[in-house]
Design a protein around this nucleic acid. Structure first.
Lengths: 193, 193
DNA sequence: CGAAAATTTGACATGACTCAACTGGAGTGG
DNA sequence: CCACTCCAGTTGAGTCATGTCAAATTTTCG
């Protein structure tokens, strides 16, 4: 087995036990893709054709409002998945953009392949069920946080939750995740020293 | 078969084909529960022990902030599910409250029963995977809406998305869903005539 | 080095909140 | 069936968190 795929094997094994033979079977449904910093994985009005496991790299998934402002939903990074799962599931055009913030390597699976994999390896159905459960919890937490805390507290929460991301992101981009303007974010940070 | 269970059978059949025998098998894992208006299905610091399909009724799922203000996440109603799925999945104490806004009848399944059902009827694994996908999409839409629209537009969206709920909810409760105070909501509605 | 982008700063604007007072049902007990 | 209470809803004055715009400064990176 290609040793660069090891993180993916560990990722699977954290959720469902997979032996060597099964792993070879699963991996045959995926393809490797490299993508450079500042390239787009998805642009609005494209259809999301893949679910992508991130071997390395960092992304920003964001939506654009009518005034041209970008709002960041999350920052998918190594050992997690990236896609517009609404567009992937429904086949509709995406309304979000996904851009690479650091050079990345992905393992991609298309929808037909994924559906075939569910049939040939039913454990994968469970794997994606559990993945979706976790994603749902994270999203619900995000809705809750935005309700319950002001921008300053949200920033604190962000720092304690994702300490490793803090120095990989510009202030402008963190502001767009917190839902405030870069100007306000600047004042806010200054105040706290 | 008890005809009052028909909506549940249709609900399943919309996602996975289930014949009569299979349906009898599935239903044997569930129990019926009736709950009166203003009763609590979950209170903060309780553990959520069931996933509940709603045969009839209307709920409010909400979180309380440090200032004692209630923020509504959603309004589960007939032909959908209600639970604190984070607490259900992890076994941790819930941080939300789920209260009945109208008399309700539920079909409940406990975690051990659900796990047994996944084993005896693997199609159910797929059913819950698809359910979770839809829930994730709905939650992501909610995060997006809150970013992109101000309170007034969010109210318009709410009305077009859930026309049937509008007259079943008080203004105070709608305000807590939109993330504004009842006072501000009142002014906002007045302005729009 | 030079251009473009990120960040900072300050003056001003506004969406939304707070608090308090008032109105008007809805439900309850006598 | 009235009197009473209790919420929901309304209104208005004052305030605060956050946004807007524009200019200055610093950083990034080709």
């Amino acid at each position: 087995m290609n040793p660069s795929l090891l993180p993916f094997k560990h990722h699977l094994n954290k959720v469902i036990p997979v032996n060597e033979e099964e792993f070879e079977h699963v991996i045959s449904y995926f393809s490797v893709k490299s993508i450079k910093k500042k390239e787009y994985l998805i642009l609005p009005s494209q259809v999301c054709k893949y679910e992508s496991y991130i071997l390395s790299g960092l992304f920003q998934t964001a939506v654009l409002d009518e005034l041209g402002r970008l709002h960041t939903l999350y920052f998918p990074h190594e050992d997690w998945w990236v896609s517009d799962f609404k567009s992937f599931k429904t086949g509709q055009e995406s309304s979000m953009e996904i851009v690479t913030l650091e050079d990345a390597v992905l393992l991609q699976i298309s929808k037909p392949k994924l559906e075939a994999l569910y049939e040939t390896f039913p454990k994968f159905e469970r794997f994606f069920r559990l993945l979706n459960e976790n994603a749902g919890i994270a999203l619900q937490d995000r809705v809750t946080q935005n309700f319950v805390h002001n921008a300053e507290k949200r920033y604190q929460e962000f720092r304690t939750k994702y300490p490793s991301l803090q120095n990989r992101l510009s202030q402008k981009i963190i502001a767009s995740y917190l839902g405030v303007t870069p100007e306000y974010f600047s004042q806010m940070s200054k105040k706290k020293e």
